[in-house]
Structures are given as structure tokens and as C-alpha cells.
Write a protein that binds this DNA or RNA. Structure first.
Length: 259
DNA sequence: CATAATGTTTAAGA
DNA sequence: GTCTTAAACATTAT
């Protein structure tokens, strides 16, 4: 589930290839990879991986001369760094072959997600229209944006053009831990709840990254490991409910989460 | 077999 | 212009 914490882990995976030269590129699914072999030859092959950075759910691989590989992971994408002797077989869309006999693979079961190359990453990111990264945003900006919104709070958190990086699963988690129902209007939140949500947003993201975005490592008192209809709420006697909010499935505890 | 699934984009309606 | 829904994308898991 590639949201901000997952992509942050992919960033760490890509950083294993930092300062290695990219000797070759294998496009394994040309339907999926937007860039052509020629573009990889021009922008990537023969260059070192100089820097890896993330904004929201996007990951950027800088390969010098203002060349950037832009990755989005859709719902099922991931990165894997492995020796050339341990090739993954299924769902590989792209492989970067490094000069140390290791490979960086982009793997995706489904076709939601993208791989592109740009010669102007500034212009490219502007076009993506991403709001401030959820891990970077300050409390004042958060408060201001929230008060200006007419949307429900869950919708607000997931809107990538306002704040980037938060998706369906982690928005549920933040709202659960803040005791806020997902369908309440953002503008109706009390100052106290806004403050609480801001703090929980940061804490949930940080903890999730510390736990390598691995659900099995998350605290049992979190919603995440209990995210199913009718499941027991880990913090009260209530049962977890499922509702549709902004086209997605939200899980919450009606008794813990009240305005 | 039918259904829902972590995301984004687009279109249409309120 | 804002916000919400639904559909589409392709494939897997239940």
C-alpha cells in the first residue's frame, strides 16, 4: 500500500544504489514504462545515481545532467535492490543494472503506477500539483489549509494537491487515533482536535516509517492491524465499521471517533 | 464466480 | 470554483 511511509522505505531501498553507475536498463513491460529505451540511453545509462528524493507518494531518481526518473507506485508497486543472481521473476516492470552486480527492480502486480523520465524535474513536479509533503508541513500551514476546506476531513487528508503523501489507509489511522469521525467537515473541527490531528499525523507517519511500513510490526492498539468490518476496536468495546467516503472505503470506530 | 482492493484521472451532478 | 460520486485502468486475493 504505497503511501508516504511505504514510498519512504522504497527511497531507502533505492539509496542502496546511490553513487553506483547504471550500466544498463531493462524495460520488462513497455506498456507500463512511459519512457523509451532511447530516453534511458540518453538520460540514465552510463550515469551514476546521484540522489534520491521523495515528495508525497512520488519518488525521484536523479541521474545527473538534470535527468530524473520519476516513479509512482499505484496501489501495488515496490522497489527491490538485489544481487544479479537473485532476479525476481514476476511483475518486474523495469530493472536498473548497476556496476556492482546488483540490480534495482521496480515491481508492480497491477498496472496502476508509472515510470517516466524528465529533463526538468522542477517543471515536472509543478505539473504534478502536489501540496506540501505531509511529513514536512508545519502546524500553521496545516491549520490554515484545513480551515479553508469545505470537504470532509478524510477527503481533505487524502487530497494530494493540498497535502501530499497520505492515502486511504493512513488517513483512517490518523483519524482513529485522533478520535475524529471520517465524514465530519474539516471546518467543523475544534482547535483542540486540529492540534491533536496534526500531532497524530506526524506520529503515525514517523512510527510507520520506523516499522518499515510493515503492518505486522505496527502496534496492536492501532487501527491498521484491526482494519476490518465488524472487528474489535483495540481501544474500546466497540466494533469497527466500514463506510464509503470520497470514493474510498473508510474504516473507523463509531464509539471512539466522535466530534 | 462475484467482489473489493492500498491510487489517480476524468466526467458529471449538486 | 468546490466537493462528491462513479467509472476506468489490470490483476490478485478472498
Amino acid at each position: 500500500m504505497p503511501e508516504l511511509p511505504d514510498v519512504e522505505i522504497f527511497k531507502q531501498e533505492a539509496e542502496k544504489a546511490l553513487h553506483k553507475r547504471i550500466d544498463n536498463v531493462e524495460i520488462k513491460d513497455s506498456d507500463f514504462v512511459q519512457a523509451t529505451q532511447q530516453e534511458f540511453e540518453k538520460h540514465v545509462i552510463g550515469n551514476e545515481l546521484q540522489e534520491v528524493w521523495r515528495k508525497g507518494k512520488y519518488l525521484f531518481l536523479e541521474t545527473g545532467n538534470q535527468s530524473t526518473v520519476v516513479l509512482h507506485f499505484g496501489m501495488t508497486g515496490l522497489l527491490k535492490y538485489a544481487p544479479e543472481t537473485e532476479e525476481p521473476t514476476r511483475y518486474v516492470k523495469l530493472t536498473l543494472e548497476l556496476d556492482n552486480k546488483n540490480h534495482l527492480h521496480y515491481i508492480c502486480k497491477r498496472k496502476l503506477g508509472s515510470i517516466e523520465i524528465t529533463g526538468d524535474s522542477g517543471k515536472y513536479t509543478d505539473q504534478l500539483d502536489l501540496g506540501t509533503d505531509a511529513f514536512q508541513i508545519g502546524e500553521d500551514e496545516f491549520k490554515e489549509k484545513l480551515k479553508a476546506s469545505q470537504a470532509t476531513i478524510k477527503s481533505f487528508l487524502m487530497d494530494q494537491s493540498t497535502i501530499s503523501g497520505i492515502g486511504n489507509v493512513y488517513s483512517d489511522e490518523m483519524l482513529y487515533q485522533s478520535g475524529i469521525p471520517p465524514t465530519i467537515k474539516s471546518s467543523k473541527l475544534s482547535g483542540k482536535k486540529i492540534r491533536r490531528l496534526y500531532k497524530k499525523m506526524k506520529r503515525v507517519l514517523k512510527m510507520a516509517i520506523d516499522k518499515e511500513a510493515d503492518v505486522s510490526q505496527m502496534p496492536k492498539t492501532w487501527l491498521l492491524p484491526n482494519r476490518e468490518e465488524g472487528g474489535d476496536c483495540p481501544r474500546c468495546d466497540g466494533k469497527i465499521k466500514k463506510v464509503r467516503v470520497s470514493g474510498r472505503t473508510a474504516y473507523y470506530c463509531p464509539s471512539c471517533q466522535q466530534k
